[in-house]
């Protein structure tokens, strides 16, 4: 082979694949955003940390949900948007650390379109475990740096993430495939095998979960408290309202939290921080406690399956809508 041909073959291969990748991501992105059930892919677990900052920018929502997989599973914009008459966005992701939760909240607060963010407080628990104060995602995709200043060259990083990253390829492929499985007129709720957020806890799942989460605690160490404080500081200056809530974990698991201790202290720490914030900041934060006996957490299985839970801690999107009602978010005025 002539040596001068090598670069042509090499660059040709690279250019061809990159072009195909960019085209796929562009087409899949448009398909997902334009699909009637497109919002439901925000409940999927995949490479959400990579692509959700891009979607947030594209969708320009008014209401944003931030938190761990409880949030990711529990708030489906396809259900919420028509009910509330607004554009919402699910910014939840698996195993969110306190640091990541603060950073995602900061990102949402920095968007002009966002009027309200709802944050699940379980993401601010932990006792200084590894990674609680570290990002596991590329922060250059977020609007602001950890200090709150605009991220330099963010447009470039969003562009490369959207079209050229492996994360976008993975999330777009998963989302587009999931949507393509829906027949005309079907929604995510009709295919819990593909959208697990709509599956229902059974007796077997309940037993397995009780065993799996037998050592689960709900405590707040110094590190998570610092992150919550940092988030409230960011919210103090923001235009968007902040609502915090203790998530409605099932009473069976709340009993475990109480046995292992720390839950009351966690709630008290949060209440104190929110009270202090509301005293000193014009932008008041709301606080709701669903991690207590209520009609959701006390539910028992009906005909062997749960109407509201995927498992003991993950509530289903209809329950998420109910929670919003309890928070007073009932329509455009409510937001």
């Amino acid at each position: 082979m002539e040596k001068t041909r090598y670069p042509v073959w090499f660059l040709g291969t690279v250019a061809l694949v990159i072009a195909a990748l960019a085209a796929f991501n562009a087409i899949a992105g448009a398909y997902i955003l334009g699909h009637p059930a497109g919002g439901s892919v925000q409940t999927l677990s995949g490479f959400e940390r990579a692509l959700k900052p891009v979607w947030l920018e594209q969708i320009a929502p008014e209401l944003v949900f931030v938190g761990s997989s409880r949030v990711r599973d529990g708030f489906d914009p396809v259900l919420i948007d028509p009910a509330l008459g607004i554009r919402s966005f699910n910014y939840g992701a698996s195993s969110m650390t306190p640091y990541e939760t603060r950073r995602f909240a900061q990102d949402a607060l920095a968007h002009n379109s966002v009027k309200h963010i709802v944050v699940s407080l379980d993401a601010f628990t932990g006792n200084g475990g590894p990674g609680e104060a570290l990002p596991s995602f590329d922060e250059t995709r977020l609007s602001v740096t950890p200090e709150g200043t605009p991220t330099p060259r963010r447009g470039l990083w969003l562009f490369t993430t959207r079209y050229l990253s492996g994360g976008a390829l993975g999330m777009n492929a998963l989302s587009a495939w999931s949507l393509a499985q829906l027949k005309t007129g079907q929604s995510a709720a009709d295919r819990p095998d593909i959208f697990p957020a709509y599956s229902r806890m059974t007796e077997a799942v309940l037993k397995r979960d009780l065993n799996y989460r037998r050592a689960r605690t709900m405590t707040m160490g110094d590190g998570p408290a610092r992150e919550l404080s940092a988030m409230l500081t960011a919210a103090c200056r923001a235009k968007a309202r902040v609502t915090l809530f203790f998530p409605p974990d099932n009473m069976a698991i709340i009993a475990r939290y109480r046995q292992s201790g720390g839950l009351d202290a966690f709630k008290q720490t949060v209440r104190t921080m929110v009270a202090r914030h509301n005293t000193s900041c014009p932008n008041k934060a709301g606080l709701f406690d669903f991690m207590a006996p209520n009609e959701l957490t006390r539910e028992s299985l009906r005909d062997g399956s749960s109407p509201n839970y995927v498992d003991l801690v993950h509530f289903r999107p209809p329950a998420g809508l109910w929670l919003l009602g309890q928070m007073g978010l009932t329509g455009p005025k409510g937001t």
Partner: peptide
């Protein structure tokens, strides 16, 4: 510098 290597290293 063969075509196969070009494609492999390109990949």
């Amino acid at each position: 510098p063969t075509p196969v290597n070009a494609a492999l290293y390109g990949a």
